[in-house]
Write a protein that binds this DNA or RNA. Structure first.
Length: 431
RNA sequence: GCGAACGUGGUGAAGUGGUUAACACAUCUGGCUGUGAACCAGACAUUCGUGAGUUCGAUUCUCAUCGUUCGCCCCA
């Protein structure tokens, strides 16, 4: 039979890598919980309109990167390309803004899907961790989200994370700025790239993101957002900078930072990290403030702010920099039966050690040589081997062997758990 | 969507237009039917991504196709 392979752009996570993912995710969760966030799990599938209206029609994600298809009832569904829009839909639909104190603080982990060309640090199905803080417009709310993200990256062991921030201004600022850009690009757009032409129509702000060398000089001369910011937006951005400084969070202002999702307004930011090997995975995380997203989805006028991390990118960076220690699976005890009669007794003891002792135990079901069983115990990183043969069964005992020190002793079965408790507590105090 | 490189066992890999496809690790078996990382012997690619072409003959050359990886765009 022909082997069926995985879908392009997806990847299997197994073995030690699974432990790395779990370690990273649980650390992110526990820090988000310190910041009073609660978990939320929106569905992977949403109606297409959630993202068209949420993420925005002019975004590349909606225009060309979504997995969208009709189901058997001809409803147009989309595999989420990001979490924020789906979470807003969840909050609006379940009226969480009315039954909870605001800001509503939510965190999430799970897979997202984007139809893109796979390459370094980029997959079609990948995992994101992120948070949303909804319903409070204080600049301190934006600040705290940045602090949380930065804290998580530091706790993972990353040093020298760069935080880039910028402001897109409020609705008025953006409208005025958009007008100014349209006015400026009106005479140049004919000579610019195809992407820019469609950006001109859909969202002129995105032209600033263009990397085509021929377009750059034109873009350099474009009006700057700073000149079109309302007093309120300007003050807001300054308050955030002040707060970050007081909290000793390093940041740099990057005026070219626009973000590809349409819902952002006011503060936007990205987290960059270059691994020591020099590999550049792009941003490991990014986010921003969104003023009108909830209204866009039929909800009340509540702003929010959030970020998301690319877990694959973070795991890769940690692996490159050797920050993923102790991800090997280990075993407390490996049980080795000798002879036909011992297998059942061994299973009984294995179950006892697991259920009553709380130890991580595996055993050998195969009839094989003791030497082989020792080899298997070593491969499984077992701390102790437990041998049960005919002689041991005769006098209700087992042999315990410490696989690192090679010490060996004979123990009665009913003293087994006490003995292991003693051995393991001794081990802990030594460490 | 565009551009480039690569595609040999479970893994890491050498290799050549000609009939046994190195080597290493891993795994399994036996030497050793109750004590392991050692040692020795053996097993392990109906075949070199797939299809077609050139050739007396192709894993090796050509083309196509698929896949992987990297870059651009964009993004986490």
């Amino acid at each position: 039979m022909e082997i069926i392979k995985n879908v392009k752009g997806t990847h299997d996570i197994y073995g030690e890598e699974t432990n790395s993912y779990e370690m990273v995710e649980s650390l992110m969760k526990s820090i988000a919980e310190l910041y009073a966030y609660n978990g939320v799990r929106p569905p992977v599938l949403e109606y297409n309109s959630v993202f068209v209206r949420g993420v925005g029609e002019s975004s590349d994600i909606v225009r060309k990167e979504m997995y969208t298809f009709p189901d058997k009832g001809d409803r147009l569904l989309t595999l989420r390309p990001e979490f924020t829009a789906g979470i807003m839909r969840l909050v609006v639909q379940n009226k969480l803004y009315a039954t909870n104190e605001l800001p509503l603080k939510l965190y999430y982990v799970g897979p997202v899907f984007r139809y893109e060309r796979p390459q370094l640090g980029r997959y079609r199905q990948f995992n994101q961790f992120g948070v949303e803080s909804i319903g409070n417009n204080s600049p301190m709310n934006d600040t705290e989200v940045i602090v949380l993200a930065y804290t998580i990256l530091c706790s993972l062991g990353l040093e020298g994370v760069t935080i880039k921030i910028n402001t897109l201004g409020d609705e008025d600022s953006r409208n005025n700025y958009r007008k100014a850009l349209k006015e400026y690009f009106k005479d140049h757009i004919e000579n610019m790239c195809e992407d820019c032409k469609s950006r001109y129509e859909l969202n002129p702000l995105r032209i600033l993101d263009c990397k085509v060398p021929e377009d750059r000089p034109i873009i350099e001369g474009a009006p700057k957002i700073g000149d079109y910011l309302s007093e309120a937006s300007k003050a807001r951005f300054e308050q955030i900078q002040d707060a970050l400084s007081v909290l000793q969070i390093p940041y740099e202002i990057d005026e070219s930072l626009v973000r590809g999702l349409d819902y952002y307004s006011e503060t936007v930011f990205e987290f960059h990290y270059k691994s020591k090997a020099g590999l550049d995975y792009g941003a490991v995380g990014a986010g921003g403030h969104y003023g009108k997203l909830m209204e866009e989805l039929g909800g009340p006028e509540l702003p929010g702010v959030g970020f998301s991390f690319g877990i694959e990118r973070i795991v890769s960076v940690l692996k490159d920099d050797g920050l993923l220690n102790d991800t090997k699976s280990t075993l407390d005890v490996y049980v080795m039966p000798l002879g036909d009669e011992s297998v059942l007794v061994a299973e009984e003891i294995a179950v006892l050690l697991r259920n009553s002792g709380g130890y991580r135990v595996d055993m050998c079901f195969d009839k094989t040589k003791l030497g082989n069983m020792f080899k298997r115990a070593t491969n499984k990183n077992a701390k102790y081997a437990l041998i049960i043969g005919e002689e041991e069964i005769k006098n209700d005992s087992v042999i315990i062997k410490n696989l690192t020190t090679q010490e060996q002793m004979n123990i009665k079965v009913d003293e087994l758990i006490d003995k292991f408790d003693e051995l393991f507590s001794k081990e802990e105090t030594q460490e």
